[in-house]
Design a protein around this nucleic acid. Structure first.
Lengths: 151, 151
DNA sequence: CAGAGGCTTGCATACTTATTCATTGCGCTG
DNA sequence: CAGCGCAATGAATAAGTATGCAAGCCTCTG
């Protein structure tokens, strides 16, 4: 039974140190599951476990109960369309106003696209502060964002 | 040049997919670091990276909580060494990019040291905005932080 | 300067994990 | 029942990672 074995693996990994697949194989055998390392390699892949300095670990997202992994992070354009309200600029800074709770996703999308003239972003609840290299670039960034917002 | 290489590795792992050590070796080579897989294996161990279905990943920001409880508030240098990825400057501002979850500890350390030319800091999840009195001082702060990062 | 000690690295290789290929068992369909 | 498709698996092996060892460099000390 593959499913029961998967549960046993999850439990072993969560509650004890499992340094490698052969150790996992021996621990499973004591619980009545007798399989080879090849099968465990596949199981681990299916369970999306990760291996670090402290042995195998459950995927962080899964334990938090999230469904994060679909097809990739959303683009700035997408997320602005959903949350963006207004874009303004001053000096080398651009301020994006969003609906409540929309700042974080917008900033994350912006960070992810790594625009060269954007040094960094800081997000509150409904405002994103975008720091650019200089006022001129900030104006460019502003108009680009504004174009997205108004598309 | 071990330290700079470590920083480059952190940044590559944070911002791009690194499926295995040989891929990491090639990406580092394009940045001017020429080392063998053996060295990378050791680096990865020292950086406590973990490998999952999506390639290598930085250690969870949980390590932020652990470092806090020992002998006193961590210095900027310490915390930058753990979390810092990149430092840049524009106008009177300095932007510190960190590992996810690393911005708060960095800002706290910076606040605690009370540098005279730093008026204040704002931290998001992975970005710290440092406001300085003027552009000249900001450049000084930047180079000081950068020196710590690359020490 | 010679030499000890410590750190970093590459090479070669042991160890660990992923994959290919073949086999088996099960359910379905004609 | 024969034939087919398909999921699960093991054996063998390829791919990837860790490590023992020795060399090269520093710094320090006598």
């Amino acid at each position: 039974m593959k499913f029961q074995r998967h549960n046993a693996i999850r439990e072993l990994v969560a509650h004890s140190l499992v340094a490698n697949q052969d150790e996992l194989r021996r621990k499973l055998r004591r619980r009545g599951f007798e399989v080879t390392q090849a099968t465990l390699s596949r199981d681990i892949h299916e369970l999306r476990l990760s291996k670090g300095p402290a042995g195998y670990a459950l995927p962080a997202a899964a334990s938090a109960g999230e469904t994060a992994i679909d097809d990739g992070p959303p683009s700035v354009a997408e997320v602005l369309e959903s949350f963006g309200l207004r874009v303004r600029q001053a000096m080398n800074q651009v301020i994006i106003s969003t609906v409540m709770g929309g700042a974080q996703p917008v900033a994350a999308a912006l960070d992810h696209e790594e625009w060269p003239t954007v040094l960094g972003t800081i997000a509150g609840d409904d405002t994103v502060l975008v720091i650019c290299t200089d006022p001129r670039r900030a104006a460019e960034v502003e108009s680009r964002l504004r174009a997205m917002l108004e598309s």
